[in-house]
Amino acid sequence: MKNCKFLFCSFLFLFLSGSLAAQELYFPERGKWEKKAASVYNLDFSEAIAFAKANEYSESKDLRLAILKGFQHEPYHEILGPVKRRGGPAGIILKDGYIVAEWGDTERVDMTFSVTKSFLSTTALLALQENLITDFNDQVDYYIWDKTFEGDHNSKITWKHLLEQNSDWSGELWGSYDWADRPPSDLTLDEWRGRDLNEPGTYFKYNDVRVNVLAYSLLNVFRSPLPKVLKKKIMDPIGASTKWRWYGYENSWTTIDGLKMQSVSGGGHSGGGIFINTKDMARFGLLFLYNGNWNGKQLISEKLIEEAIQPSDPNPNYGYMWWLNKEGPRHWKGIDKNIFYAAGFGGNFIIVDQKNNIVIVTRWLEPSKVEAFINIVYKSM
């Protein structure tokens, strides 16, 4: 009887710890990925695939031209990092981890622009998990002692403010100024440059210079290049290829512990960012679908992932550099509110649906068509 009780408790522990559940999930090996026909799940994604192919991103495949046109309103904007000519529409849909739909060249490495931000925020989760950062509510200047966070305003900024893009950090980094990054069209340059700053945590503003401040701050915390951290802690364990790269700018170099290191970019609108293929993006999405677990190993704690996809106070559609499909200005109507996604310039998306065990990666889809595309996908369900 005692043995039975012991066995039952052991089983219960395994179940609650997620070990048993992890054994029942599918984790693709490096270089391999099992496919299942969508019809096995009574699904048909042919209409969605046709839609994605027919609604390719309309700007030039020469991304240098597309970038310069897309950000021509920014004063002093220039391309500082690598840029690569893009491919055509591509995508993958996963169900229970299996590939149930695929189109285009999913092995081709392309720029991914602001999808990079979700990879960047993941390195911040790792820093907290490893106690390199004690609390995201800590002020960053406690960790970074140079001039980056000097002053009455910048010294108030916490890690959480940077992750949620509501810090209103003010200054210059790698030759780029925060006030010159996506300035509002209703203000003159002098008005924008001399504006009153918002209290950190109260006002959302999408701003790549401030995202790069986060990347620089994390580089100083890890004291190791972020691509190296991401590779060792995330991309290698999930079986990603060796093809992906994470770049900064030609001038974004600093010296730490006597070694010259590049501070990477959190996006690509000045070049740089993560260059990656569709399948590796899907693996990253699958890790978040599985709440940070990969084949029984908890790479990121489930608690931290849950925290990362909570709405911020100033923006109900934004967490820690993941977009959220909550009620708000970026809500996709008719689609589950618990979906979260990474999004980048030119129509690059990683969409995670934990309720239905689905990951969708689509590339070079006209951004204004993504909501229609997602509704076509879910119509088949």
Rank of each mutant, 00 (worst) to 15 (best):
N3E: 14
C4A: 14
K5H: 03
C9Y: 12
C9P: 00
C9F: 14
F11Y: 10
F11D: 00
S19F: 14
L25F: 09
L25E: 12
F27A: 06
F27D: 01
K36V: 05
S39Q: 13
L43D: 07
D44V: 10
S46V: 05
I49P: 03
A50M: 00
A52F: 01
A52G: 09
K53N: 13
L65K: 15
A66E: 05
A66G: 12
L68S: 11
Q72F: 14
Q72S: 15
Q72N: 14
P75K: 11
P75H: 10
I79D: 07
G87H: 11
G87N: 12
G91M: 05
K95G: 08
Y98Q: 02
A101N: 05
G104W: 02
R108F: 09
V109L: 04
F113L: 02
K117F: 11
K117R: 13
A124C: 09
L128N: 00
L128R: 12
E130K: 14
L132T: 05
I133E: 05
T134S: 14
D138N: 13
Y143S: 08
I144R: 07
I144W: 08
K147C: 03
H153I: 06
N154L: 07
I157Y: 11
W169F: 11
E172A: 02
L173V: 11
W179M: 06
D181R: 11
L187D: 01
L189Q: 14
G194Q: 14
R195P: 09
P200Q: 01
T202N: 05
Y206L: 13
V209G: 04
V213Q: 06
V213I: 13
N220K: 15
S224H: 13
L226F: 02
V229M: 07
K232S: 13
M235K: 05
M235G: 04
I238A: 09
I238C: 10
S241L: 02
S241T: 12
W244R: 02
W246V: 10
N251E: 07
T254Q: 08
L259P: 00
S265L: 03
G266E: 06
G272V: 08
I276R: 03
N277G: 05
K279S: 13
M281Q: 15
G285D: 04
L287A: 01
F288T: 03
L289T: 03
Y290A: 00
N291F: 02
W294K: 04
Q298K: 15
L299A: 02
I300T: 08
E306I: 09
A308D: 02
I309H: 04
P314S: 10
P314C: 09
P316M: 06
G319S: 07
W323Y: 09
L324W: 03
G328C: 06
H331P: 00
H331D: 09
K333E: 15
I339P: 01
F349E: 08
D353N: 08
Q354Y: 00
N356A: 10
I360F: 08
V361E: 05
P367D: 01
E371F: 12
E371H: 11
I374L: 15
N375M: 05
V377I: 15
